[in-house]
Every structure is written in C-alpha cells, then in structure tokens.
Design a protein around this nucleic acid. Sequence first.
DNA 1: GATAATACCTAGGAAATTTATAGGGATTAA
DNA 2: TTAATCCCTATAAATTTCCTAGGTATTATC
Lengths: 132, 132
Amino acid sequence: MKLSSKGRYGLKAMCELAKHYGEGALSLPFIAEETALSEKYLEQLLSVLKKDNLIDATRGASGGYFLTRSPEEISVGEILRSLENGLEIVDCLSGDCQNKSTCHTYGVWTKLYREINKCLDGISLKELVEGE
Amino acid sequence: MKLSSKGRYGLKAMCELAKHYGEGALSLPFIAEETALSEKYLEQLLSVLKKDNLIDATRGASGGYFLTRSPEEISVGEILRSLENGLEIVDCLSGDCQNKSTCHTYGVWTKLYREINKCLDGISLKELVEGE
DNA sequence: GATAATACCTAGGAAATTTATAGGGATTAA
DNA sequence: TTAATCCCTATAAATTTCCTAGGTATTATC
C-alpha cells in the first residue's frame, strides 16, 4: 500500500506554491527547479491540481501557477485525494460492491478509509510549510 | 494508494481459518474452494502468513493449515503487515531517509502511518468473522 | 510398504500500472 | 511581433502486480 509519486511530488509542488503564497504566480520552470522535477512531468501534476480547483494559472508571458485559497484553508487530504484520484484503499469502496452485506472485510476498509481521510484532513498546507 | 490483492485475499483466507478455528486443520483445496481462489495462488499467500507465524500447517494426507492463536488474539493489522510486507505508505519510512530533518512532508507520512496501524491493530480477526 | 492426499518451493510470464518523456498548440505581457 | 508561458495528448520505458505451472517432500491410511 504505497502512495504514488504523483501524490508525493504533487504535494511538494503545493508546498512550494504555499511558501510563496501572496507573491503572485510562480512559473513552471521555477517550481520545477525548486522541486527538482522535470518541467514536463510537473506540468501534468499541476494540471490535475488545477482541474480540481486547488490551484489556478495565468497564461502567457509572466504567467504562472498560484493557490486558489490560502495555505491554511487547504488540507493535505484535499491535495492527495486530487492527485491520487481518491484515497479509496480498495475498489469496492469506489464502485458499487455487490456483496457489501455479506463481506466480512468490507467494514475494515470503510473504517480505515475514514481514519485516513480524518488524519489527512486535519493537516493544513500551512502547518506543513511552517513545520508543525 | 491501493491495498494489493495479496492483502485482500489473504485476509479472506484468514477469515476462513478463523471461522473453523478449533476444528483442526483446513486443507488448501478446501480454503481455495471457500474463498474462490486458485489453489496455486492461495498457496503463496498462505506461505507468507506461515513465514510470519500467523498460521501453521501439517503436511501429508489429512494435513492442512490452522491459526497459531485464537482469532481474538490476532489483529487485522498483523495480518496486513504480513501480506503487504509492511504498511509503510512511502519508502522513506522503511529505509533511511537522508533529509528527514528538512523534508516538509515527512511528518505527514509518519503521522498517517501511525494512524493506519492504530486503526487496524484495533480490529481483531474474531470481530471480523462475527461481524462487529 | 504402497498410495493418495497433502504442504512446500521456485521460476517465470502476461497484464496492468506507474513514471515519466516528447512534441506541438494556444495565449498573452512586453 | 516575439518570447515566455500554460495547455493538451500520445506513447514509451520501467516496474510491479497477479497469477500459472511444474516439480518435490511429507505423511496418514489402507
């Protein structure tokens, strides 16, 4: 049960945006430099975050990416659910599971799913960047 | 972030063993039948669980697999850590991470790791089989 | 002692997923 | 007009997952 690179790297990119919150848009090359990621790869991560309205961007020269809300209003849970396309640890939590009622293990997954989300929703991007 | 089939199916097999706890050993073909898994595949899951001393087996005719402890003494956490080879959600939790101190996200992973284990260690195999 | 039922071990391959790389298009400030 | 930027999509390499397969060792039962 591993978090994907997308999740890990995307969160780092969000930290970078948080560090410079209020300073205007950050360009892709700049964020790539700071996070040590290739521009082309980072671009895809940012496009996911943008689709989910966690960040926005301005195009053209001197454009770039920026957070749509302040770092204290964005939780790590939101970010990872966006990047990981949901935090459901088993498929039966996403789709419709036929035998919810009879399955012995279904309860475990729902319980764990709730705990994971609760934990991550309790951490804001601000806390992350400022260190505790 | 998905649990592997190994984890899901192995837990089902453990449930089967728990259901018949005290009735002697269950044969591989029997467990395979009940869990709807191929014998050869199930065999590998059981070998992992055996290596970690959650189950044991007797060989030869009328042999089979059985739990080493009663279902109430075995937690779902133990079972999944065995099958998943640990529940570390990122690699830096397993190996030695060089920049623990400077990494913004390291704290998130340790916190989440603790919560996941706490949650799963709080559920016994007995609860699972008896339904709450 | 032979037989059949069982667990044990290891190799490997198909399929899926992850992790990127690459190229070109659209937009816009200067 | 130009250069800097974001946007979109295809695809390739690497890794991992998931499972099949074949053969070996052990032992209760007849």
